[in-house]
Amino acid sequence: MNTIRIAIFTAGAVGLAAAGYWWNQDRQGSSVTGEPLAQVVVPSSLTPIAERGRIAFEANCAQCHGTNSSGRDGIAPPLVHKIYEPNHHGDIAFTLAVRHGVRAHHWQFGDMPPIEGVGDETVAEITAYIRELQRANGIN
């Protein structure tokens, strides 16, 4: 009798796990689109440092964080967002994120890995670009 109960319980647990897996796969397949998560107003001109940052951002960050840091659905958050305003995430936070990666804490995108080959000077230029985008979008 106990063996039958264990078999039924095990089969039920496996069935629930399989259903959860397939439901999650279906849900991810329909919601992970990579579409922008934010509408970003781009300033008509950038300072020279921010323009260098824009070029570096496009080469190193846009694949995940989207064009003009608008984020990508299911992939990475927009950096033009109040969470990343300077009084919450100072400029050093961007440097540390690139150097060491970041554990997921504000968003459900998973951890960000370190970004190899991007030095501190380049991160400073990228940060200047992000800050100019933020200001153009009312994030100070």
Rank of each mutant, 00 (worst) to 15 (best):
M1E: 11
M1P: 09
T3M: 08
I4H: 08
I4C: 00
R5L: 13
F9T: 10
V14D: 10
G15C: 13
G15M: 14
L16A: 14
L16F: 15
A17F: 14
A19L: 15
Y21H: 13
N24E: 12
Q25C: 02
D26S: 15
Q28F: 12
Q28P: 01
S31M: 13
S31V: 14
V32W: 12
T33E: 06
P36S: 11
Q39Y: 01
Q39P: 01
V42T: 14
S44W: 00
S44I: 08
S45N: 09
L46P: 04
T47N: 06
T47C: 00
T47H: 01
I55H: 04
F57P: 04
F57Q: 00
F57N: 03
N60P: 02
A62L: 01
A62N: 07
Q63I: 10
C64P: 05
T67Y: 09
N68V: 05
N68K: 02
N68C: 02
S70P: 02
G71H: 05
R72G: 02
D73F: 04
G74W: 12
G74A: 11
I75V: 15
A76Y: 09
L79T: 10
K82Y: 03
I83G: 00
I83C: 00
Y84M: 06
E85M: 13
P86D: 06
N87A: 12
H88D: 07
H88W: 13
H88S: 11
D91L: 02
I92Y: 05
T95G: 07
R99E: 14
H100W: 10
G101Y: 11
V102Y: 05
R103P: 00
R103K: 14
R103L: 05
A104K: 12
A104M: 05
H106I: 01
F109Y: 15
D111M: 00
M112Y: 06
P114G: 01
G117K: 15
G117H: 14
V118S: 04
D120P: 01
D120C: 01
D120Q: 12
E121C: 00
E121P: 00
E121W: 00
E125S: 13
T127H: 01
T127Y: 00
I130Y: 06
I130G: 04
R131K: 11
R131L: 11
R131G: 04
Q134D: 05
R135S: 09
A136I: 08
A136V: 09
G138K: 08
G138C: 07
I139Q: 02
